[in-house]
Design a protein around this nucleic acid. Structure first.
Lengths: 185, 185
DNA sequence: CCAAGGTACTTGTTGCGTCAACTAAAGCGT
DNA sequence: ACGCTTTAGTTGACGCAACAAGTACCTTGG
């Protein structure tokens, strides 16, 4: 499948022995890399399929609703919500508009800052996300958690943390910072 | 970030102690799961960014060209190419049409089977993919390979193999089967 | 040798994400 | 009080992927 990443190992060994200019991978590295790329390609698709089928939500919509469900008053400013879901503001704006049309969230202008918009989870939205959560977790178990033993779970956590330092150096995604719910003023 | 996956651990412990109906995750499992989801979300974006910037290709287009570059006569049937890139046929058809408009591949009707279409990498397409490969591998090193030590590389390979058994039980993706290039007749 | 069914694509439609404006509201210096 | 800049969000256009239909070709049973 991927000779193109290692097939010229011998020829570059001739004139480019140093790390910086020798791009190709060893067989072990190649297998790990291709495995990770495959997982990264397939996992989001599976998550979307399960949630779409069982709850009529994309994974991203689920994340939006889930973040709101945990926030004080089930309300977050768009910017904060975007940070927590690793979305651009335009993307979030479109998605929230569609969710509002479906009656799952409501938007309101923030009283303390006229520029800001607060998104609030409706009762119906709460029912939807609470109804979707068990199936989602079941899928997480089926695809990942139950496929690995405890040792591998620990290894996976360490590996993903290392990778996230490179993939997301600013820690924009999954900031885990305490909620600054409404108007910080 | 994700109380919604574990916040009710205590309350379900009351009435649903068994595995099948107890969906929530332990803290360790939760961290590994969220880490993997984040990586799966960010890695494809980074790969697309680097290839788009340096070679004007999406990761998927790069995969298409790379698979062709390894095939005998730089030629594959659409169905085979779709299997090797984990794409649906409609998706591949659109992408190959665009690549043909850019002069990177050529399509021709298969002489031995009038239904089939062969995609062939042009010289220009070969130059593009060969030019793109080093930067792509460099990015793979920067984001993943060089972030992990040899032990973790081995762990990651084992973990991804386990996960792929669940994510892709039919081994549709990355089948690594020998090329059946043209007309098996 | 012809009809029925399956195979290998291609094409049109729809939905979502990104990018590039654009609007409106603060903040800030004078 | 007046502009100028920054911040927050929305909107519209465009590109790409998924799904559904359609077309052309092969194959198999009668």
């Amino acid at each position: 499948m991927a000779q193109h990443l290692d097939q010229h190992v011998d020829q570059i060994a001739d004139h480019a022995p140093d790390e910086a200019t020798a791009p190709w991978l060893t067989a072990d590295q190649l297998r790990a890399w291709l495995g990770l790329v495959s997982v990264a390609e397939l996992l989001p698709v599976r998550l979307d399929q399960q949630l779409q089928r069982d709850a009529g939500l994309t994974h991203f919509e689920y994340m939006v609703l889930a973040m709101l469900s945990e926030a004080p008053d089930r309300t977050l400013r768009m910017t904060m919500l975007a940070a927590r879901t690793d979305a651009t503001l335009p993307r979030l704006s479109h998605v929230v508009r569609r969710l509002e049309e479906r009656g799952l969230v409501a938007r309101s202008s923030c009283p303390s800052d006229g520029r800001a918009t607060n998104a609030t989870l409706s009762d119906e939205g709460y029912r939807v996300v609470v109804g979707a959560a068990p199936g989602h977790v079941r899928e997480a178990r089926r695809l990942v958690v139950d496929a690995l033993d405890a040792t591998q779970i620990a290894q996976l956590e360490a590996i993903t943390q290392r990778l996230l330092e490179r993939l997301d150096p600013d820690r924009r995604f999954c900031p885990d910072r305490p909620a600054t719910p409404d108007s910080p003023h």
